[in-house]
Design a binder for these strands. Sequence first.
DNA 1: ACGCGGCATTGACCTAGATCAAAGGCTCAT
DNA 2: ATGAGCCTTTGATCTAGGTCAATGCCGCGT
Lengths: 244, 244
Amino acid sequence: MSRAGGGGAGSAIGRAGCGSLCEQCRVRGISVCRSIEPAALDELERIMTRIELPAGRVLFDEAAPAEGLFTLVDGVVKLFKMLPDGRRQITGFLLAGDFLGLAFFNSYAYSAEAVTDATLCRFPRDRFLALLERHPALEKELLGRASSELAAAQEQMLLLGRKSAKERVASFLLMLARRQQAAGRTTVALAMSRHDIADYLGLTIETVSRGIRAAAAEGLIRLIDRHHYVVVDDRRLRFAAAAE
Amino acid sequence: MSRAGGGGAGSAIGRAGCGSLCEQCRVRGISVCRSIEPAALDELERIMTRIELPAGRVLFDEAAPAEGLFTLVDGVVKLFKMLPDGRRQITGFLLAGDFLGLAFFNSYAYSAEAVTDATLCRFPRDRFLALLERHPALEKELLGRASSELAAAQEQMLLLGRKSAKERVASFLLMLARRQQAAGRTTVALAMSRHDIADYLGLTIETVSRGIRAAAAEGLIRLIDRHHYVVVDDRRLRFAAAAE
DNA sequence: ACGCGGCATTGACCTAGATCAAAGGCTCAT
DNA sequence: ATGAGCCTTTGATCTAGGTCAATGCCGCGT
């Protein structure tokens, strides 16, 4: 269970008009909003809607008309694509501060679903694009994000196309640790199920389980419980991930 | 062997100052340059250098400082990442009109190498970024390209993570056909080697060969020779690709 | 406190695709 | 034309990881 983020107004759902929500937002400095100067903040706030999404709830479906863009304020969200017969590939896990929904065609390229309870800001597409016109810095911010997402996607292609099961799991453990260290944590939370991890790594749940167990048995990580671990030997973990 | 593109000035290498090169360029209407108004075209041309790259030559290496941005005018270029032990994943094949080299960190996220002889326009990074400031349409164009590349990357993750060998090969044959149909061709050129295809699909050359042969045997495509084919049964090919 | 249902783990087996091996067949330089 | 070397194809094994099956574990609701 994760807590909502907006400065004590945790249960505030709907149009936010008070003028302090964005200013005091916990992702103010790490989301796309950081590129908006303080003076223009309430312009952003006027078009924004707060959304609380319980774990497991779908935010939008692949191929649905892309009418909203979102900033993730709290929680974890997964993005995925599916094949007609139900096979699924998770293309990314988003954490607080991440942006989603950008689609230059008119429909989403993937589905989005909450992994944990999540809090998001929703911006209507047309209004947000209009805002973009007036704020080149925001556009630059989006371009920057798109290109680092692209780099991450290419890294993931390398993983999916060429790494062994063990290397994939090690890479994943390492990646999660890095992202959460960036947020100051030492114990890493595995918010998602083994099933989600499997669908992210192109493996089965059994192989993921064996991979995590092996990493623990070899002393690369220490498992606190099924959903928490600590990186014990960063150097060897990097090596196991074929990352150097 | 592909021919150079710039309106009869095929062998022109180096700074281009004549003022007509860009205007008459064969990718004028499909490259990022289409977002530059005619009047500002020679501003672009002043910072541009034409490059002829023979097949097999490396354009830049992963992790090298990203000092240039490029538009592919003619030929085919592959982008790839490598693991320390030599395993390789090709993340994309670029055709005429495609843009490459965007790196929001200061070094390239991948290597680029010519598959066939290729012609490119090179823009020095700093000058190009400066141009971006003055041409919001160009920035919008880049954002659009980045986000459709991202969508393609996610599609490829689905392929690499969840499709069978046969489905991967069918998807590839279909994708190439689509991209070349867009350029008006009915016979599809397989410019790249089986090795490159394998490294793009996360397979081995043997499996790729068997997959292509099977597709031909089943009447999905007709092989003209080893490097050319025609799509015979689009509907069944899409089905074989698990694309519907 | 208890029991139910969904996760996760562990083990035994099986298969898609890798690996190994051997021929063709093109391309290119002489 | 000729031959060398590479690319591609085809066939025969081998194995990483998938599939199937059983058990354990944990959280949740009553």
